[in-house]
């Protein structure tokens, strides 16, 4: 066989086989990956809306809301995603909000790239728990009504301002005391 033809044939065989292997693995792994993503989402929603057993997904004005329901189907609160600007990049958060009381029900940091041992401690419950029961009308200013972490002020400020700016939109859609 001509050596150029041989090169092309060999490369072609490699590519086709590789494609087949990849397609096959994707078929097996993808459902698992999706399932995992869903599990993570559900876990974070349940974390920020304590006491719920299932949730409904609603899209309003470009924001995705997860309305949490308990066993009897009573609405227990709304969860939504918020983003803040941290020291090392964006901070992705899941925030739980109870419009009836006008209070936050929980906060979970989904992803962030803050300095380990410092800003990264915004992930710890010691920091996130303070937002539980916090009124949405609070100013959300670090060192005033938001406790900061020793040695790191920028990451907590990013979390606080991220929640505050998301709440400004969310409270227009689901006003305090209103129905949802």
């Amino acid at each position: 066989m001509n050596q150029y033809a041989r090169m092309i044939v060999v490369l072609l065989i490699f590519s086709v086989l590789s494609g087949a292997v990849l397609g096959f693995s994707y078929e097996i792994a993808n459902p698992k990956i999706q399932e995992q993503a869903k599990k993570d989402l559900e876990a974070s929603i349940k974390n920020v809306l304590p006491g719920i057993t299932k949730y409904e997904q609603v899209e309003k004005e470009g924001i995705t809301f997860y309305i949490g329901l308990d066993d009897q189907g009573n609405k227990k609160g709304i969860a939504f995603k918020a983003t803040g600007q941290g020291f090392g990049g964006p901070i992705e958060m899941m925030v739980g909000y109870d419009p009836k009381e006008g209070k936050l029900t929980g906060l979970q940091i989904l992803s962030m790239s803050e300095t380990p041992g410092l800003g990264a401690r915004i992930k710890e419950p010691a920091f996130t728990e303070q937002f539980k029961g916090k009124s949405v009308n609070d100013p959300f200013i670090p060192k005033k009504d938001v406790q900061v972490i020793t040695g790191a002020t920028i990451s907590p400020a990013g979390v606080a301002s991220g929640i505050k700016s998301a709440l400004e939109k969310v409270t227009k859609i689901y006003p305090v005391g209103g129905d949802y």
Partner: peptide
Amino acid sequence: PAKVRIPCYIIVIATFVTVVDLFMAG
């Protein structure tokens, strides 16, 4: 063939890496 060995290696390696990537994610 010697002349296309590098692309062939890359395809083989990339395939295995992607398989690891997918299974690890799942």
